[in-house]
Design a protein around this nucleic acid. Structure first.
Lengths: 295, 295
DNA sequence: GTGATCATCTGACTAAAGTCAGAGAAATGT
DNA sequence: ACATTTCTCTGACTTTAGTCAGATGATCAC
């Protein structure tokens, strides 16, 4: 067994000692670290809600409020009520705020440049690859799986991307018609579920459950975002859905798929799914699988 | 050009968000972060001087003193005067301190384990490799080159290791005799210099300069520690020494080497050194090189 | 031996970071 | 329509973190 834990901790020690500088670079901006970090976070996205900021930076609501007021009194940000939900507030940079942000960004970039400057071009490329690999894997490892409403923004985005991809890959294309809204009800609790996997705020995978009868539940709309494949997310999504199906008390799982989706088929087979008879009249399906629940 | 800077910053953001937890894991130990970090640092080595701690953690002496007193009053550490130098003090863990340390360590390990647990064995191995590569490169990038006295601990350690290695590689071995002390004077300012490269506190390379005559300076004792080779440190040490020689006002550089040290020979050639006549009677030398100074 | 230097400690601070308990406004469930 | 929940804000705090100016004692250079 490889001892990643040790490597991870050793890396963490070494890294924070060296690159912690990148953060304290926010110091020297004449602004306390907390404020600077907040400013940076606001400028990274445009139009953030305070709620999002709170989650992303892990701040107490009172504390955040005070920090925002400080930035506001420096005329770096404007805070306005969210038109969609009057309880929330949205934050945005002013022109002066954008300028301050740019300065933070430039300083941070300078430090990063200085840090890697002793390396040769080849070593820099190697470092680039290593960091990218590590980031991808760590982000994949910390992806979170949550049940959401099938008509929520995240769900709709995920399925639309999925459908667009099917349209490209299927010979003869794929026409979703009104499936998006038509399916919604069947994938809502208590009959069904819709699960999205998120890395930070971006949706990187999804999957749905539909109860067919007392015994049987179907898995549908399984998808992993391009650029996030090969990281085992498909398998983890499948396992997550299976757990939920078991918890819902079904005895067996079914699913269908198109013959061109070979990676999917391989994955199902690897996870114990066996071919079964056609159980529906889905015109896009050429393969049908089933698997008993464990319990 | 690869944009490592961007990758580095993106990685930093992503990493600190996820692994920052590893540090704040020190919280939840019922001890403030500063104290916990100090305790951890004390336990990682045995018998540290406060001076070392101050450098490693970058703390103000007054602040450190106070933190130590807090740990002491909790009976986690004992602070005693250093027998070698009465101004300094050495810190060590008590039994209770060791126990507290073990708890911190266990908690940190748990978190690391939980973090990577969703990954497959293969992915974990890949992460391990990527993090190791990144750490090596970042540590190499941040190595510092300093002039030290040729009889200082660091210099002596470096040269002893170097000599031991020569003894192994040279056909017929290498007998340093009293070179260590005999050379010291010639490598001290103003006639000469001795430079060590350090990553954190460990010496990873060294090199010496000896003034031969008004025109000429010799480079000696160039060595890069095993495990730190292939990272361009040799080239950087060479460049560092050359700069110092130029600043000393010499017009040309000479150096000798043994025929078995092929990597060194290749490096000298790559850096513009050309073969020259034997200029000394070093019994271990078979090759002599020279290079003019730029100015 | 003596003056300069070095390392630690103490007292007296300040600023930043973070917590907690409500109050008040908007949305939601039934 | 009314109770409940969800968010944000304010006031009143505490704790950490960090700085600065000496004082004290040990060591070093000459």
């Amino acid at each position: 067994m490889s001892d990643v834990e040790l490597t991870l901790r050793r890396f963490n020690r070494s890294f924070t000692q060296r690159i912690g500088v990148l953060d304290s670079s926010f110091l020297g901006s004449g602004r306390p670290l907390g404020e600077a970090r907040l400013l940076f976070e606001i400028g990274a996205a445009e139009r953030v809600t305070t709620l999002e900021l709170r989650h992303r930076l892990g701040l107490d609501s009172g504390y955040l409020s005070r920090l925002l007021r400080a930035l506001e009194s420096d005329e770096l940000v404007v805070v306005a009520p969210d038109p969609d939900d009057g309880r929330r507030r949205v934050v945005d940079l002013t022109a002066a705020g954008r300028q301050a942000w740019d300065e933070l960004d430039a300083r941070s970039d300078e430090l990063a440049t200085a840090l890697v400057s002793p390396l040769t071009e080849r070593q820099r490329a190697e470092l680039d690859r290593a960091l990218e690999t590590a980031r991808r894997l760590l982000e994949a490892a910390t992806v979170r799986f949550d049940v959401v409403d099938p008509e929520s923004t995240d769900a709709v985005t995920a399925m639309s991307t999925y459908f667009a991809e099917l349209d490209e890959r299927f010979t003869g294309g794929f026409d979703p018609g009104d499936t998006l809204t038509a399916d919604a009800e069947s994938m809502r609790a208590p009959h069904g579920r819709f699960v999205v996997a998120r890395a930070d705020a971006t949706v990187v995978a999804c999957g749905g459950i539909v109860r067919i009868d007392d015994d049987t539940a179907e898995i549908k709309r399984m998808w992993v975002a391009e650029g996030w494949r090969g990281l085992g997310l498909g398998g983890r999504m499948l396992a997550d859905l299976e757990h939920r199906i078991e918890a819902m008390g079904a005895a067996r799982i079914v699913l269908d798929t198109n013959a061109v989706l070979t990676e999917a088929i391989t994955m199902y087979e690897r996870h114990g799914y066996r071919p079964t008879d056609r159980y529906n009249d889905n015109p896009y399906a050429q393969r049908w699988f089933t698997k008993p629940c464990r319990s």
